[in-house]
Amino acid sequence: MGSKTYKVTSPVMGTFYRASAPGEKPLVEVGQKVNAAEVVCMIESMKIFTELRADQPGTVKKILVENEEPVMKNQELIEIEIA
């Protein structure tokens, strides 16, 4: 109860990718521990891939978007429970 979480959001309109390259395994799964600055997903916009990183260490609680789905700027992508 009351555990603190934060959400990784998309800096740009684009396409959400859970892996760093097609065919690779997802960067994170629900329940996985992440370190601060660890890459948790990728956004592709206008053919440029941007790595999105965890702000603080924690545990992945929810992945809010399906792989390869279009996302809007500022859309919430991954919820992380702060360690």
Binding site: P22, F49, E51
Partner: peptide, 15 residues
């Protein structure tokens, strides 16, 4: 290596 390969595949269909 990983990032560049993904970009290459997305842009040119060839990693």
């Amino acid at each position: 290596l990983a990032v560049a390969s993904g970009e290459a595949r997305a842009a040119f269909g060839n990693p």
